[in-house]
Nucleic acid binder design. Structure first.
Length: 292
DNA sequence: GTGTTTGTTAGAGC
DNA sequence: AGCTCTAACAAACA
């Protein structure tokens, strides 16, 4: 569930806690999700100092002082927790404020990093889909990812090149991490709504004003969501309030905030997809409104 | 019990 | 051949 804005928020939260810290221990109980192996990752990270914490698409990137890189992907249900003491002590959890009155140790702890200042970073993941990867070559490891949608190089022209020359439906294309890095189900639906585009529009049929609108919509919705600390819709990701600003996602049968038409929920490439049928007509021409 | 959720991948289809 | 789409999968929760 964590998409680019949620991962960015997590990175900003943990950056001051982790940068400059030395890793003194690593343990994990998710062998299938750790690459190359738990033992090799432990050997690679123990004794190393975290020089920089970064984000690339939906990956959290630990830059280690020997040039090695640790990548963490949260997939559906992964999250970080911060603990000052042993979980048996059950104190000082980073997210305790999100669950008032509850000091219980976090559930579904799959991996633990011990730091030289006594804190512990916990990787919790109810569904065990998350991934922890150590590599010496970040470029090679992320070679399959498309550009960062908030980077300077992600221009209207760049988006135009990604869309043209391909004849795919817009939504599956935007979700494809090899095309653009970081968009997931929520922000794809939101960006398409704000651009006034139907998710099944063919990518090579957009005219330049539509490409411009889609480009602006993607960047606007991602920046807004980062300012809101991401979207909190269930127990998986606490602390955000972007859900209050969503236009279509999760609003099936509710009135469109722009035109009042009932929001529709479709099934598209196995994903729940939310549209306003009036603001996002299939013919590509926008209805009564669009940008404003 | 059932449906929902995600990114990746293998394989089918055009 | 090359591109595009679909189904399957991992696992837990409401």
């Amino acid at each position: 569930m964590p998409e680019l804005p949620e991962v960015e928020t997590i990175v900003r939260t943990f950056r001051p806690r982790l940068e400059g810290r030395r890793i003194v221990g690593f343990a994990a109980r998710m062998p299938k999700q750790i690459s190359p192996s738990t033992a090799q990752v432990r050997r690679a990270v123990c004794g190393r100092t975290i020089q920089r914490l970064d984000r690339r698409a939906k990956f959290i990137v630990f830059h280690l002082d020997d040039g090695g890189v640790l990548l963490v992907h949260l997939r559906m249900s992964g999250r970080f927790e911060w603990a000052a003491k042993h979980p048996s002590g059950g104190t000082s959890l980073g997210h305790a404020r999100d669950r008032p009155g509850s000091d219980r140790p976090p559930r579904h702890v799959r991996a633990t990093w011990e730091l030289d200042d006594g804190h512990r970073l916990l990787f919790c993941d109810a569904r065990k889909f998350g991934r922890i990867i150590h590599t010496r070559d970040l470029t090679a490891a992320t070679a399959g990812l498309g550009p960062e949608p908030l980077s300077r190089s992600f221009t209207v022209a760049a988006l135009g090149r990604l869309l043209g020359g391909r004849r795919r439906q817009l939504k599956p294309l935007l979700l494809d991490q090899a095309i653009i890095g970081g968009l997931g189900n929520i922000y794809t639906d939101e960006a398409l709504f704000r651009a006034g585009l139907h998710p099944q529009c063919r990518s090579d049929q957009l005219r330049s004003p539509q490409v411009r609108r889609l480009h602006a919509a993607i960047r606007h919705v991602l920046r807004l969501a980062i300012r809101r600390h991401g979207t909190t819709i269930d127990w998986i990701y606490p602390g955000g309030w972007m859900q209050r600003s969503l236009m279509v996602y999760g609003r099936a049968r509710e009135p469109c905030r722009r035109c009042g038409t009932s929001i529709q929920r479709l099934r598209l490439s196995q994903r729940g997809t939310h549209i306003c049928p009036r603001c996002q007509p299939l013919n590509g021409r926008r209805g009564a409104r669009a940008e404003r």
